[in-house]
């Protein structure tokens, strides 16, 4: 178990280094956190109450988050300590492109399609990403300066995206990469002893079970 997925051999940095990196990044980016949190909260509120059938705003916000993580976080910041970062960056940039195409251009984020159960699970997951995950990280000993914030660091952003995906019920194409990172991120959390990241695994389970529900418009509703 200590060499989960062979990651022990590949993770060549310590939790201390990641915390330091996140702390320095948070310092450099402040007060951008206010904007990303506001955008995430607005997206969630619109998805819950307005329930638009074609929501380019959600696609736009999430594409921005994923592109930032691919280019700004993994390529520019994390790559200095993580030799895998450039490869992960490519996946995050691809997800950003997919969100732009399907979420903004094609308008395939439909917040009317999900049934109440997965919709509620998705909203809870997104809310957890915004507020609960940073709190959990703090409880597990993360320094305040290094607390993860949605839109700026991968953990909460992936959780938030998976929550929104449960609410919007898009094609699997938009879910595969966040789901994959949720599993890899949880394994990394295990290897590094960053226990808050195990929430990613729970979110992956929630998405797989929630996505198993048929759409509100599927034939069994008749």
């Amino acid at each position: 178990m200590n060499d989960l997925l062979g990651l022990e051999r590949m993770v060549l940095f310590t939790p201390e280094v990641l915390v330091d990196l996140h702390g320095r990044l948070n310092g450099d980016l402040w007060p951008l956190h206010v904007l990303t949190l506001a955008l995430a909260a607005l997206l969630l509120a619109r998805a819950w109450w307005a329930r638009p059938a074609d929501e380019p705003f959600a696609g736009c916000v999430m594409a921005g988050f994923w592109l930032w993580l691919g280019i700004g976080y993994f390529t520019n910041a994390r790559a200095e300590v993580d030799w895998m970062a450039p490869y992960v960056a490519a996946a995050f940039i691809l997800q950003g492109a997919l969100l732009t195409w399907f979420g903004v251009v094609r308008g395939s984020l439909d917040f009317t399609a999900a049934r109440p159960m997965p919709r509620g699970m998705g909203a809870l997951l997104a809310l957890f990403a915004i507020a609960g995950y940073p709190l959990l990280a703090w409880v597990f000993g993360a320094e305040t300066a290094a607390l993860p914030s949605v839109g700026l660091l991968p953990g909460p952003t992936v959780l938030f995206t998976l929550g929104v995906m449960l609410m919007a019920r898009p094609s699997w194409v938009l879910i595969v990469l966040p789901l994959s990172w949720a599993i890899v991120g949880a394994a990394l959390g295990w290897v590094l002893g960053m226990w808050a990241d195990l929430a990613l695994l729970i979110s992956a389970g929630a998405v797989l079970s929630g996505r198993g529900y048929p759409s509100r418009w599927s034939p069994d509703r008749r």
């Binding site: 993770v11 310590t14 201390e16 280094v17 990196l21 200095e80």
Partner: peptide
């Protein structure tokens, strides 16, 4: 120095 010296550009570390 595997892991232990990989501290990036952090002046403190």
């Amino acid at each position: 120095t595997s892991r232990t010296f990989n501290v990036g550009s952090s002046p403190r570390l």
